[in-house]
């Protein structure tokens, strides 16, 4: 087969390149630009080198936000992934209940994020919210606007409510793709329910679970809207996650240089952790 050489074809790629340049590359480069400069206003900038990066990396405020962020992300992963798998396992595989379950599961995913924050804010208010009133009625002193522990509990409950469905749907997709013969063979082999889960269902779900973990990791590490609406980062700084902190730094204090440096560090952390997750979970696939 002879390949036709036609360089004009490159023009067809141009629209995509322009689009990517304007929505990703150029904004990212402005951030890089800010991160190495200092300004005193009036649009005059001075070269600052890597000073903002050093500042951010040594900042206790950044460390605290990062620790809160990691705590949040790993807590919700530890809850949502197993819970999602368990729910997927209990869902019917065929029959009229399948669409009912699927639609019910998909509902939380369809609600806009700020609405989720608002729903939970009102739901959890100690004076008027259903959750807040019930908990206080049971004699539990619960006020998420004043107690950091309560704020964290509400934040995590909200995220689990909002996003477990995604894990359920992905795990369910993995489960229904397992041919019946596997279950029949396992029955004949006398496998226990646990052995079926361990040796058939879990390995077959592995790919979709990897995707679920990656998506939930990245999304939860970037989470902004819901905690912003629910707690605004408070009480105090107790639920100030990285993104909230970043917005405070960039738009609240207008410290463009440190905020840009923090953005880049934030981005690299997500990139690095995603890569580690992916590599660990896919390690066996090669063999």
């Amino acid at each position: 087969m002879n390949k036709t050489v036609n360089h004009k074809a490159w023009f067809l790629v141009l629209p995509v390149l322009v689009l990517v340049a304007f929505n990703a590359f150029i904004p990212l480069m402005t951030v890089v630009n800010y991160s190495v400069q200092e300004t005193f206003g009036d649009n005059t900038f001075f070269w600052a080198g890597l000073i903002w990066f050093e500042d951010v990396l040594h900042s206790e405020r950044f460390h605290a936000a990062l620790v809160r962020q990691l705590t949040f992300t790993f807590t919700i992963l530890a809850i949502e992934i197993p819970l999602g798998v368990v729910i997927a396992l209990t869902m019917p595989k065929r029959g009229i209940w399948v669409p009912v379950c699927l639609v019910t599961m998909a509902l939380p995913l369809l609600i806009p994020w700020n609405v989720v924050g608002a729903i939970w804010n009102i739901f959890a208010l100690p004076e008027i919210g259903l959750l807040g009133q019930v908990l206080n009625g049971l004699g539990i002193d619960y006020n998420f606007t004043r107690q950091p522990g309560a704020a964290w509990f509400t934040l995590i409950a909200m995220d689990v409510w909002h996003w477990t469905s995604l894990v359920v749907l992905l795990a369910y997709a993995g489960l229904v793709s397992i041919p019946d013969a596997f279950y029949q063979a396992a029955k004949i082999d006398g496998a226990s329910t646990w052995a079926i889960f361990r040796h058939i269902q879990l390995p077959k779900m592995k790919r979709v679970l990897t995707i679920a973990v990656l998506l939930r990791f990245m999304d939860s590490f970037n989470i902004y809207t819901e905690p912003f609406v629910l707690t605004g980062g408070g009480p105090g700084n107790s639920t100030t996650l990285l993104s909230i902190d970043l917005v405070k730094l960039a738009l609240g204090q207008f410290d463009l240089g440190p905020a840009a440096a923090m953005s880049l560090i934030y981005f690299l952390i997500i990139l690095a952790l995603s890569w580690i997750f992916y590599t660990l979970m896919m390690r066996d696939e090669e063999r």
């Binding site: 041919p179 013969a181 596997f182 029949q184 063979a185 029955k187 004949i188 082999d189 006398g190 496998a191 052995a195 040796h199 058939i200 390995p203 077959k204 066996d284």
Partner: peptide, 29 residues
């Protein structure tokens, strides 16, 4: 149920336990 009947069945598409070695597959039942 099938596990009490002491039968063996080979299906149209090979059913193996992916994560196990050949030895563990054979040892499984």
């Amino acid at each position: 149920p099938p596990d009490q009947r002491h039968i063996a069945q080979v299906f149209q598409f090979p059913v193996i336990y992916d994560t196990m070695t050949v030895h563990d597959n054979l040892a499984f039942p």
